[in-house]
Design a protein around this nucleic acid. Structure first.
Lengths: 143, 143
DNA sequence: TCCTGATCGTCAGTAAAACTGACGATCAGC
DNA sequence: GCTGATCGTCAGTTTTACTGACGATCAGGA
């Protein structure tokens, strides 16, 4: 697509942005049949993993605003994929848990994500793909 | 910061987003003294490299909308960093060229970008940093 | 030469997304 | 029982990018 000069295309900012864009393009058609967006699937993955979490815990972990999280959970709840439950120990908190239907969509989404990532990494030798993931992981953790 | 479970943090989408976020955090204080944003610097890098380009050429190469490009060039022009000139061969097109001041900011920004990227890649061995860049490059080109 | 369709830059209006500030309900510590 | 802080929520605002339309300009054919 873009044949911008190296001064631009070799910037990490440019590369990260466009890699993300391309991944979104690849994933979208795989997510569409599930009736959810990539972001909604990310939420399902978050709340489906490990013990039940409150909305704000989830927001902090995903790096989104707590008010944004309200809207996101609203969407998933409207689709019947998650439920809000008052936390037993702290009635201010709402634990978000997956419904059976939500769990089904989560599992299917997990598989679609794997496929989309495989498509994105296709140009690379398999080991380089894992190296890329590991490198990003370290960079994000900042250590 | 975030200690989300592996089902989320190992997703490429998550990693790409947060790597970008972290890079932006690192770069912002370096860009601020120049009085421009990272995106504006990207534009300066784009139009400062190689022969003069029209707005729409630039838009296509950066992957932004043409109407967005109008606003971006407006900003840079207001700061006196670029000039619009009617293209000699095609009077519909506006060639965007850097003013001397724009060229100075571009060069300083280039250096700031290098520093920010170095900070981001700090956790990695030097060669892994370059491997990361190369892998992203191939993935973005899609081949 | 004139006409038709397309492209470029521009602008107004719109849509999507996230943030700010505030609120009631609830909790923890004194 | 009081005080300050936290959680989820909501209204309003801001930011950001896109859609559709416009005039100006170009290219190609009748």
């Amino acid at each position: 697509m873009s044949s911008a000069p190296p001064a631009v295309t070799s910037r990490l900012g440019y590369l990260l942005k466009h890699a993300q864009l391309r991944l979104a393009e690849l994933a979208e058609p795989l997510y569409a049949p599930l009736g959810v967006t990539g972001r909604q699937l990310a939420l399902l993955a978050l709340f489906g993993a490990g013990p039940a979490q409150s909305q704000q815990d989830g927001a902090a972990r995903l790096g989104v605003d707590r008010t944004t999280m309200v809207a996101l959970v609203d969407e998933l709840e409207a689709k019947g994929l998650v439920r809000r439950e008052v936390a037993p120990g702290d009635r201010r908190k709402r634990l978000v848990t997956l419904t059976p239907e939500g769990e089904r969509v989560r599992a299917a989404g997990e598989e679609a994500t794997r496929q989309a990532e495989a498509l994105l990494l296709e140009p690379l030798p398999a080991e380089d793909g894992e190296r890329l993931r590991a490198a990003l992981h370290r960079v994000v953790r900042g250590e």
